[in-house]
């Protein structure tokens, strides 16, 4: 495992309680593939045998709808078995502003941690994809909408730095609603922090493959997700800066069919390839080979 330096202003917090059976069940329910033996496809509404879908990378065998998957599932799907070595797995969020909306932020964190078994919304680490060594980051929408606060910003930044130091290809799979409101300005500045780390990585001629999945919006799109040397997107993934609801409110009209979907971004010139989930590993390794990394 690669060694990661200590981060700024780290403090020890009490460890989280271990996840029990109930939590695991609710975690599964939240991971886009709902609970039960049978599940209904979000697109074609066909009732599908769960095992079948799970064995098909969580893609509907009938209509090819890509179910949303957790960061953990993403790591499993993308990497060679057993090759993932996490960085900063114990890094956890704090509440720098004492943020309270309808509920206190620490309560929301604790709930998300119980539901996902993760400390925050991204997993980073070193792994192999088709025998090519990479630095990988996978975001998890189930953790507070995959939002970027200090932990996501810091883990992504450290992943970029490690990739630069070891001249490894960097693969970031985004799945996020944007910057995390509960850390306000701290979250906002993670956009600048990750972008500045990528500037250095670019200066080092590093290869960054950005994979956009459903959904990738707001401050994540407007920072590292759109800075890939090569940008891939899963079919029909929602990708944009502002959310569709906000845009609808602004322009007071219905949005066109397929607006802000991966295919639309491809047409507009902001995505290089729309890639089926079953082809992601092949496509990523092919690009790594072309870049000679």
């Amino acid at each position: 495992m690669l060694l990661i330096g200590a981060t700024n202003r780290m403090t020890q917090v009490p460890s989280q309680s271990s996840t029990d059976r109930t939590d695991l069940r609710s975690a599964r329910a939240k991971k886009g593939v709902p609970e039960g033996l049978w599940i209904r496809c979000g697109q074609c509404a066909t009732m599908l045998f769960r095992k079948l879908v799970e064995n098909n990378l969580c893609v509907c065998p009938d209509c090819q709808h890509h179910f949303r998957i957790s960061g953990e599932q993403r790591v499993q799907q993308l990497t060679d078995p057993g090759s993932f070595e996490p960085f900063n797995a114990t890094m956890a969020p704090v509440d720098p502003l004492g943020f309270v909306d309808l509920r206190p932020y620490p309560e929301r964190i604790a709930k998300a941690q119980r539901a996902t078994g993760q400390n925050d919304a991204v997993q980073t680490g070193q792994a192999y994809i088709k025998a090519r060594r990479v630095v990988l980051a996978c975001m998890d929408f189930n953790f507070l909408g995959g939002s970027m606060g200090s932990v996501v910003g810091e883990k992504i930044t450290q992943a970029v730095v490690v990739a630069g130091e070891h001249d490894l290809p960097l693969v970031i799979v985004s799945c996020s609603g944007g910057a995390r409101m509960m850390e306000s300005g701290f979250s906002l500045m993670q956009m600048a922090k990750t972008a500045s780390a990528l500037a250095r990585f670019d200066d080092q001629d590093g290869l960054f493959i950005s994979v956009l999945t459903d959904p990738t919006t707001g401050g994540v799109t407007a920072s590292f997700a759109m800075l890939g040397d090569v940008i891939l997107a899963e079919p029909k993934a929602l990708v944009g800066f502002a959310g569709p609801r906000v845009i609808k409110q602004t322009i007071h009209q219905e949005l066109p069919e397929g607006f802000q979907r991966a295919e639309f971004l491809l047409e507009c010139g902001f995505v290089d390839r729309v890639v089926h989930r079953s082809e992601l590993r092949t496509e990523i390794s092919r690009i790594i080979d072309y870049a000679g990394k």
Partner: peptide, 11 residues
């Protein structure tokens, strides 16, 4: 910029 903690146990 950023405030994070080490949680003791890995997830």
């Amino acid at each position: 910029i950023g405030e994070v903690a080490l949680a003791g146990t890995p997830p």
